[in-house]
C-alpha cells in the first residue's frame, strides 16, 4: 500500500512539475514563436504579394472575429494609404491542407496576388504550386469571384499539369478567401482607416 501511494505521489508531482514548467515556458515564448512563424513561413508569401508596400505587413496586422474563428489580416500600405490586405485561407490538397495567402486590393475588389505558405504536396508535382511562379501569377489582378474552379471543372483557373487536385485545393482556398472577404468587408474598412495617414 505504501509503495502504491509513493508511486502515485511521485508520478503526480513529476507530471505537475513538468506541466508547470512547460506552461511557463510556453507563455514566455509564445509571442516570439508566432512572430518567427509569420516571418519565416508566411513572411515570404506576404512580401511577394504586397510587393512595393512601404510598411512591414507582418508588424501591421490585426485580427477580426469571423463567427467563431479569428482571422489575421496583414496590411499593405501603398503611397501612404492602406490599399491591400493579405489573409490566409486553407484548401484541401493532395497531401493535406494547403495554406494559401491571398492578397486583396480593397479599392478595386481584385486579387493583388496569391502565394502558397504551407503544403505537403508531392515534390515536383503538386509542390510546383509553390515553386513555379507562373501558377500563382495567373491570379494577379483577377476580380474576386464567388467561386474559383479549375478549367477542367468548368472554371477559370489554369491547373498545374498533373496536379489537378492541388490546383483544386488552391481554387477552393481562393473561393473561401473571397467569401470571407465579402462577409467581413465592412469591419475591415473600419480597421483599415486607422492605418491611413
Amino acid at each position: 500500500m505504501r509503495e502504491m501511494i509513493k508511486m502515485v505521489v511521485v508520478l503526480t508531482v513529476l507530471s505537475s512539475f513538468s506541466g508547470g514548467l512547460l506552461a511557463a515556458l510556453r507563455n514566455g515564448t509564445q509571442e516570439r514563436i508566432e512572430y518567427q512563424q509569420l516571418k519565416f513561413v508566411k513572411g515570404p508569401a506576404i512580401r511577394a504579394i504586397l510587393k512595393g508596400c512601404s510598411n512591414d505587413p507582418i508588424v501591421d496586422r490585426f485580427k477580426i472575429k469571423d463567427g467563431d474563428v479569428e482571422r489575421s489580416f496583414f496590411v499593405g500600405i501603398f503611397d501612404g494609404k492602406p490599399k491591400a490586405v493579405a489573409m490566409e485561407s486553407i484548401g484541401k490538397g493532395f497531401g493535406g491542407p494547403i495554406g494559401v495567402m491571398v492578397g486583396i486590393d480593397v479599392d478595386a475588389d481584385k486579387i493583388a496576388g496569391v502565394g502558397i505558405t504551407t503544403h505537403s504536396e508531392t515534390p515536383g508535382v503538386g509542390a510546383r504550386a509553390k515553386t513555379d511562379p507562373t501558377f500563382v501569377a495567373q491570379f494577379k489582378g483577377v476580380p474576386l469571384a464567388d467561386t474559383f474552379k479549375v478549367k477542367a471543372d468548368g472554371g477559370q483557373v489554369d491547373a498545374l499539369s498533373g496536379a489537378t487536385v492541388t490546383s483544386r485545393g488552391v481554387s477552393a482556398a481562393l473561393t473561401e478567401a473571397s467569401a470571407v472577404y465579402k462577409r467581413l468587408k465592412p469591419k475591415l474598412i473600419e480597421k483599415l482607416k486607422t492605418y491611413s495617414k
Binding site: L22, L25, T29, I33, Q36, K39, F40
Partner: peptide, 10 residues
C-alpha cells in the same frame, strides 16, 4: 522544441 521555434526557426 519551444526554444528552437523561438530562436532558430529555420
Amino acid at each position: 522544441e519551444l526554444l528552437m521555434q523561438a530562436f532558430t526557426y529555420p
